[in-house]
Design a protein around this nucleic acid. Structure first.
Length: 443
RNA sequence: CGGGGCAUAGCGCAGCCUGGUAGCGCAUCUGGUUUGGGACCAGAGGGUCGCAAGUUCGAAUCUUGCUGCCCCGACCA
């Protein structure tokens, strides 16, 4: 992408409404624009990252056996009356009346709807286990939206719903999502710690919140420091096999949020030098809630014994849009964002320091074409700005690599290749630059 | 929903107390000089001062009401 033809409104100054670093940097890097409290437009650069995060979530859901569909944002109130949640949900639910005076709502979550889909089509235990998910915009009319996309009213969420014949099988489904989550967050450069959690209005017995440690996190958390060193299940993990050992390993050490923490238990079970008392961002939550929805809504299957039984369900959320904030909170410096390559909006920023110059233009154009051909996503700064402005902008948007093409280096045929994360710079020929980046960015 | 604060050009702000032609920096446009870490000179454009009522000869400024936004708390992906 040529910067001269892109839409990237970078801000030099900090907008005053943004207090925390991820919100500031997202605004400054031209990724989002606030339209209303907790409601954002996603500008091109932000959308690219959102799509990459979404893709990773989809890949890991698929790997774990979940099947994607898409449910609507607007739902009928009748469905929610069946479960009793229309009255119970409270003011966070945005209620809408259509032209025929029918009660509608903008979905804050989809348990009722997925249960409706399930009950209309699935009859036999032989069709289980089933895990259906979608990635859709949700609306929760939060009392106090804040921190940019970290607590928006409109937000993008992945929500999966599992259906099983009994509790034992449901726990297996739960474990699949649990392991998928460990992998999903790690692929974005995050370490998310599963913590004991309250189940809230979703309800249920078994639940974990996946928490990324960050100073700006909204809740206080207490956990064992070994979580930060644990290995993540690899690509070869067998989702058809028994995952209980992995889950047991990841839940053996103490970890809880402030809502449910038992300080006595925390101190008794974690040696003093291993205790982490910090703040965290919730990036996902898993629930097993049994027949809470299937029973009132009549979602039953016929079991092997010929009797109809309500299915055991679980739901599994990932805050997709919130993850942008969490990733930036976890990875930035005083100059701007530092994107992990897996979610970076572009891999490389190619900076032509002197557009129109006989030395820099042909080198940049050639390198740009070759990198694109090699599958490297390049943001090519071909604009006529001063070097300082270009460098500052590149640092703010935080692409993994910057390639600087200026007359000074090119006198000797050399480009400067800078690693955004380490700050290391080296002078390389165009060919060596291409080789290095191809090797670094194609796995 | 309780407490606090803000609203003046795209962004950041001054002006308000003490009413009298709406300003500054950055950004934008034109011309020129520059060019390796957010340049310089000269010029230009851009505002119903959040909205509405009131007081007044006259309101960005004083009064009242409303709306929007931000921060702290209680709730949540």
């Amino acid at each position: 992408m040529r910067l001269s033809r892109y839409f990237l409104p970078i801000l030099k100054e900090n907008p005053k409404e943004a207090e925390i670093v991820s919100h500031r940097l997202m605004l400054r890097a031209g990724m989002i624009r606030q339209q209303s409290a907790g409601i954002y437009s996603w500008l091109p650069l932000g959308l690219r990252v959102l799509n990459k995060i979404q893709r990773i979530v989809e890949e890991e859901q698929h790997r774990a056996g979940a099947v994607q569909l898409l449910m609507p944002t607007v739902q009928s109130a009748d469905l929610w009356r069946e479960s009793g949640r229309y009255e119970a949900y409270g003011k966070e639910m945005l209620r809408i009346t259509d032209r025929h005076e029918r009660d509608m709502l903008f979905g804050p979550t989809n348990e009722e709807m997925i249960t409706d889909i399930f009950r209309s089509s699935v009859r036999s235990y032989k069709d289980l286990p089933l895990n259906l998910y979608h990635i859709q915009w949700k609306f929760r009319d939060e009392v106090r939206p804040r921190f940019g996309v970290m607590r928006g009213r409109e937000f993008l969420m992945k929500d999966a719903y599992s259906f099983d014949l009994d509790q034992e099988k449901a726990v297996e489904s739960y474990n699949r999502m649990f392991v998928a989550y460990l992998r999903t967050y790690r692929r974005m450069g995050l370490t998310a710690i599963p913590m004991r959690a309250e189940t809230g209005p979703i309800g249920g017995d078994l639940s974990h919140e996946f928490i990324v440690l960050a100073e700006t996190g909204e809740s206080a958390v207490y956990c064992h420091s070994d979580f930060l060193e644990k290995d993540i299940p690899g690509n070869d993990v067998d989702f058809d096999g028994d995952l209980s050992a992995i889950v047991a390993d990841w839940t053996s050490n103490y970890a809880a949020t402030e809502d449910v923490v038992d300080m006595a238990e925390f101190e008794a079970s974690v040696p003093e030098d291993k205790r982490i008392s910090a703040r965290g961002i919730e990036v996902g939550q898993t629930f097993y809630f049994g027949t809470k929805y299937s029973e009132p809504m009549g979602a039953t299957v016929t079991g092997p014994d010929g009797k109809d039984v309500p299915v055991h369900m679980g739901s599994y959320g990932v805050g997709v849009s919130r993850l942008l904030g969490a990733i930036i909170e976890a990875s930035h410096d005083e100059n701007g964002i530092i994107w992990p390559a897996s979610v970076a909006p572009f891999h490389v920023g190619l900076v032509n320091l002197k557009p129109g110059d006989a030395l820099t233009d042909p080198v940049c154009e050639d390198l740009y074409a070759k990198m694109e051909a090699a599958g490297i996503e390049v943001l090519y700064d071909d604009t006529d700005q001063r070097a300082g402005a270009k460098f500052a902008a590149m640092d703010v948007i935080g692409l993994p690599y910057q390639v600087i093409a200026g007359p000074r280096g090119l006198k000797d045929g050399l480009l400067e290749v800078k690693d955004r994360k380490t700050g290391e710079k080296e002078m390389l020929s165009a060919e060596a630059t291409l080789n290095k980046l191809t090797a670094a960015l194609t796995v």
